[in-house]
Design a binder for these strands. Sequence first.
DNA 1: TTCAACGACGATAATAATTATCGTTCGAGA
DNA 2: TCTCGAACGATAATTATTATCGTCGTTGAA
Lengths: 145, 145
Amino acid sequence: MTSTVQFEHFDALCKEAGITPTHQRLVIWQTLTEMHDHPSPEDVYRRVKSELPTVSLATVYKNIHLFVDTGLFREVSMFHGTLRIETNSEPHHHLVCRKCKAILDLDADDLSGFPLPQHLPEGFVAEQLSIDVLGLCATCRQGKP
Amino acid sequence: MTSTVQFEHFDALCKEAGITPTHQRLVIWQTLTEMHDHPSPEDVYRRVKSELPTVSLATVYKNIHLFVDTGLFREVSMFHGTLRIETNSEPHHHLVCRKCKAILDLDADDLSGFPLPQHLPEGFVAEQLSIDVLGLCATCRQGKP
DNA sequence: TTCAACGACGATAATAATTATCGTTCGAGA
DNA sequence: TCTCGAACGATAATTATTATCGTCGTTGAA
């Protein structure tokens, strides 16, 4: 459901990022904001195609990378062979099952108050922390204790 | 340089992990312990092949996964499309350049005192934390300020 | 408003990484 | 030593991703 407000918001984001706001990009962006997990490019493609049947998988890839490069979305590929996109814009971290590779979000509160490290190699500028808690999910614990 | 001590150590590790200690596995394991960075399977293959010319790339892949699954090594694939193996056994975290994807190790001291989170979803058992500091390395900062 | 220039799109070929298959060989226990 | 199942090597197949290229859409200038 494309509202004018959403479109204008997207338009502003594109201007800020210095990219052209096209119809395809709008739909891909909307789709991403409506998905509240960590979809793969293929997942996104499937949903976008239902709204925009002629879209190409390559376009989805190109624009996901564009969004990630310009900071509209973030990548979260930890422990997956495949690219995953972070659609949750709230500050949070991840819980990753080392067996089934499921990714669960973890409120930032639970891992708050953590300072950016002080002793970095010469010239490295730290921008953000990515914290993953590795372990076993309930389901996988059944199989192998 | 395979010493008896090393071989016995590997033998014990295999027994503990419940896997058969073969010659190929020994060489792959040794190679990994001698590399102090985050090699790709292809990197490992090249080195192993110099010692064991008939080894197959598939064998390297199979055994890397086996080592990772049984806990002899850890995977570190963050922000890479490709599998990387953690060969540094000291507790530490990573510094990742978001542009060139370089991975640098960060002593655990610099990120110490971090508690495992308390409010986990029902049934999830946290085993370890993986902390990545994202930013720009000195080289990449030159190109795009 | 119209038009040229350039970037974006879609289709698809190509590449890179990884995994599966399968016949042969090796290692551990009887 | 012998036997069986697991591991190996060679390679085909698969999967994910990226590049190519002709066409189309968007934007800014006239």
